[in-house]
Design a protein around this nucleic acid. Structure first.
Lengths: 177, 177
DNA sequence: CACTAACCGTCCACTGTGTCATATTGAGGT
DNA sequence: ACCTCAATATGACACAGTGGACGGTTAGTG
């Protein structure tokens, strides 16, 4: 049997809590794991189809609004528990702003700093959200672990944004442009 | 004309420095931007084909080992300079370990901490590398900016790994497993 | 009752990832 | 001179991930 991909695994993980539709699953994923594992609706439906074909998931009773819930099968539960016991691969960061900076000589420091500054409010907002989660105390140990990563990450980004003007000060721009 | 994707843009950016083959480009990408923008060989060849079709790049003289270098056209240079002036989208972090932790109740804290510990040496190594880059002083302003991000990021990850045992201590595991 | 907003699924085109196949050549050993 | 291995080089292919657009459905509100 083929290895589960992380998205498929997450779907199984969510379904363990009860029947959910594709739409529900996409929302749950966005809310709960969205900050470190993006899942789009399209992908959820595709994975549900494959998981159904593999017998790891089965459709429940169709409900209002063409809503089609799915539930975990025993095979699905077994497969998930196999998946979660396998060591996760390293993380990936995909940061287009850094790409722009890497070729930053085309723009020069001033334009670059403007571009960077645009992202700051997002990071501040997310940091505040994570901190309020931790302060409100409604999280279990595992959620606290992931949210704590978020806090550290956003702090790192913000502190880097603070340093940027100093680092780029006096950087030469290309003659042409 | 369609918007360039970041990978295509990076290829144009590298070619600005001179003729390079697909293989060269993949290597340059891995070395210079690989930590925040992954590019695989397959993708490089596909993008080169598309960029050629769009007239942004053109093949140079074939050389030894079936090596096929490419060079930037004027249209390519213009397109790149348009791309780099457009504000970059937000970054994405894809962190499978956090996914495992989010469903960590299936494993319990001890297994989770082992899995997390496995990644520590990688982060330590990368942090050391980045720091030596900065210390050696061979970087221009723009490279220093990206490498400084790397330092902050790796520090954040390591500090989070330090906190993990405390956060997960006493976390309940599922009864079954 | 009519309208609107949220709900729900699907499709499609494209980008990104990983593996496999294949061919060429340089370096080193015998 | 011959052989072999590793590095160089391209490409095919399948699958995973992304994002937008579209078209129905229904709950709730006025």
């Amino acid at each position: 049997m083929n290895e589960l991909n992380p998205t498929a695994a997450a779907i199984l993980g969510f379904l363990d809590a009860g029947e959910l539709s594709g739409y529900d699953l996409a929302q749950a994923a966005a809310e709960i794991i969205g900050d470190f594992w993006h899942v789009t609706r399209s992908q959820v439906y595709r994975e549900l189809a494959q998981l159904t074909a593999r017998g790891l998931v089965e459709p429940g009773e169709p409900a209002a609004r063409a809503r089609q819930p799915y539930r975990l099968t025993d095979a699905g539960r077994a497969e998930f528990s196999r998946w979660i016991a396998t060591p996760p691969p390293p993380e990936q960061v995909r940061y287009p702003l850094l790409l722009t900076i890497a070729f930053g000589a085309w723009l020069g420091p001033d334009r670059l700093l403007e571009m960077a500054a645009v992202h700051r409010p997002d990071h501040e907002r997310r940091l505040a959200t994570y901190r309020s989660y931790l302060a409100d105390g409604g999280l279990d140990h595992y959620q606290r672990a992931t949210v704590t990563f978020g806090v550290g990450y956003e702090q790192a980004v913000l502190s880097w944004l603070d340093q940027l003007p100093g680092i780029l000060a006096g950087a030469p721009a290309r003659a042409d442009g």
